[in-house]
């Protein structure tokens, strides 16, 4: 037992030191530096015109990217779980591509496809008055691209687990496809959905590489919060860079807190399904049948 204890405490120490040195300490330094010249400077840095605009743009982009990924995420998840078709496994693997490809590559790829002068679709779109690259639509596309799998990866296991019986029961009780989706499917996956949305939001707020390429980084126009951080830092405006960084980090931490608070509910809904399956085989006493 003593040996066990030793292992347990050493493991804890190793993990804590590792996380501390790698994550907690550096991030806390960002917070410290953000407020190093007082709260007044911190607020001034954030309310400065281009920074404020950048945050506003980041928020708009993140919200759009999350909305798009939620809608398509639900559609793709249902397709993956409820239908069998040739290439289903390939599609499932393909969905993870945005997580493994470097965001810079994503940016370049979008530039090639939608660039205004020599992209595949860019000139045609530009002729009809829609500018994608070096404009908000491009930034939204890049952000949606990199955060695509997050909603899907949350929903798919839950959809698989709940199976189709509830949906079939709803059908036999007279519900049409939409009623079944809205009243049975969505409530059954709601926690996974919320979890996926929060993760996507956090990821979208912090996207840098892909956005940097497609946005063109035009101050006051296409410069997002992460780009502001980089620019301020390179222009030796350290405090301003740290202030913006702090807000981004705080948003991410907030998202994690929300997710952690949701997680018990999320796990519960998943585990009740497990319990349900388990109790069916367990003797049920005192049934007043």
């Amino acid at each position: 037992m003593n040996g066990n204890r030793l292992v347990r405490y050493s493991l804890r120490t190793i993990v804590l030191v590792y996380l501390g040195l790698l994550i907690v300490w550096p991030v806390s330094l960002v917070a410290k530096n953000a407020f190093s010249e007082g709260i007044g400077t911190f607020i001034d840095a954030l309310t400065e015109e281009t920074t404020a605009y950048a945050f506003q743009l980041t928020l708009i982009v993140a919200v759009w990217a999350v909305v798009i990924n939620t809608v398509f995420g639900i559609l793709i998840s249902i397709l993956l779980v409820r239908y069998t078709f040739p290439g289903r496994r390939a599609l499932s693997a393909f969905i993870d591509l945005p997580l493994s490809v470097s965001p810079v590559v994503v940016g370049l790829a979008l530039l090639l496809a939608y660039g205004g002068t020599n992209g595949w679709f860019g000139p045609a779109l530009e002729d009809s008055g829609i500018q994608v690259i070096y404009a908000t639509p491009g930034i939204i596309m890049a952000t949606a691209f990199v955060s695509l799998p997050l909603v899907i990866r949350e929903i798919v296991p839950v959809l698989t687990e709940i199976g189709t019986e509830q949906e079939q029961a709803a059908r036999s009780l007279g519900a049409n496809a939409w009623q079944t989706f809205r009243r049975i499917t969505i409530p059954a996956i709601r926690w996974a959905l919320v979890y996926g949305v929060v993760l996507s939001l956090a990821r979208s707020l912090g996207e840098f590489g892909a956005v940097k390429i497609v946005s063109g980084n035009i101050v006051g126009q296409t410069q997002t919060a992460t780009l502001v951080v980089e620019e301020k830092y390179q222009n030796f405006e350290q405090t301003a860079a740290y202030a913006s960084s702090f807000v981004l980090a705080a948003a991410a931490v907030l998202a994690l807190i929300v997710v952690t608070l949701l997680r018990p509910g999320h796990e519960e809904s998943a585990s009740t399904a497990g319990v349900t399956a388990a109790t069916t085989s367990v003797p049920t006493q005192k049934d007043p049948a």
């Binding site: 709940i162 019986e165 509830q166 079939q168 029961a169 709803a170 049975i184 409530p187 059954a188 709601r190 809904s269 009740t272 399904a273 349900t276 399956a277 069916t280």
Partner: peptide, 8 residues
Amino acid sequence: HYAAFKHM
């Protein structure tokens, strides 16, 4: 397996 609507 009952197909109970678990959220209702």
